[in-house]
Amino acid sequence: MTQLALVIDLNVCVGCHACVTSCKEWNTSGWAGPMTDLRPYDEDPSGTFFNRVQTYEAGIFPNTETYHFPKSCLHCEDPPCVPVCPTGASYKREDNGVVLVDYDKCIGCKYCSWACPYGAREIDEKQRVMKKCTLCIDRITDLSLAESLRKPACVLACPTNARLFGDVHDPNSEVSVAIREEGGYQLQPEWGTRPANHYLPRRKTRIQIHEDELVRADNPLKKEQLPTPEAGETLDDVAW
């Protein structure tokens, strides 16, 4: 069975919010819209978003590292928000595993948001129904688009290619390979919700350099500084 998901590379994300704005732009005018903003230019603005980029800092200055952390619905394989819905408005698509809300059935009771440990669901204050990331379902299933464009808006917008999209059940897909080879992990795995979205950890690239590799004994530029060998010529002196 197909399980579409995002894999977000925290090693590459620079926190530019391009995914946030492209998500809002695509979805507010699309199938899942509108994504209502309340008082956008006044005091205490508020609005509906499917995706947010948060920033965290690990460590204490000066030994700190900044994590930009994009956060959206994780499309759990065992979604706790679906069985609690009293109307059946929340559902998981059989064919591709995307968790969706039927806006025509939702009564806005907010119970699903209580049941989601990730806080992935938001109520639209204007339409008064629950909304969440759809993985741009109207885009990824649109066969009239070129295959390279059949991806969520956030994935296409990401300037650093920190967001990968694909089927995590297909072992040879780009996302499965990334999860497997780059140490992909799930958020709050303790609950057993099995989020489909994965995150790739920060990775350090290090090379091992030994002291003698930094100082070349036969460096001609330092010829004068070299100590005179005590026992005649060395192999280095004749090598060139």
């Binding site: 925290l10 919010h17 946030v20 978003f49 947010r52 980029v53 948060q54 920033t55 965290y56 800092e57 690990a58 460590g59 204490i60 590292e65 900044t66 994590y67 952390f69 956060k71 992990y185 799930q186 958020l187 709050q188 795995p189 303790e190 995150y199 950890p201 920060r202």
Partner: peptide
């Protein structure tokens, strides 16, 4: 566990 970052000191700097 929420972030998957195993550092003893984690602080939020922005909510988005």
């Amino acid at each position: 566990s929420a972030l998957g970052v195993h550092h003893a000191q984690l602080h939020q700097k922005a909510q988005g």
